[in-house]
Amino acid sequence: MARKLRVLIAKPGLDGHDRGAKVVAAAMRDAGFEVIYAGLRQTPEMIVETAIQEDVDVIALSILSGAHMTIFPKVLDLMKENGINDKLLTGGGIISEEDVEKLQKMGVGKLFGPGASTRDAVQYVKEWADEK
């Protein structure tokens, strides 16, 4: 039997609004993924370190504070430095279309905004894993 997909869900930065992160974590658990929920105030260093230790396939970040243009690139850089840039970096939050485009050009995966369905997020991760 194939190993369960392992997903790390974390909230970087100072923002404490964890409703979305927790709902997505529950939905991914119910979809059969192994969810590692890191919780609040995770620095990019902590996130990448946990990703390596837990041997995850996917890193999903929730950022509602507007700090996404600082945090996503940092995590991406650290993933490259540590040779885990074959993993998927995705996430969600309040992120303008313009910023989504910029981040995707850098190598971040799909980003989900307000009103997105958790089913779409689950589907996206499954498809990414199938293509890999």
């Binding site: 930065g13 923002d15 700090a67 600082t70």
Partner: peptide
């Protein structure tokens, strides 16, 4: 903003990217 809410000055390293946003 979030740094102020968390008791951090604007020049704290944890404040980076969050000053004046929320």
């Amino acid at each position: 903003d979030l740094p102020t809410l968390m008791g951090l000055d604007a020049d704290d390293s944890f404040s980076e990217g969050e000053v004046g946003l929320c």
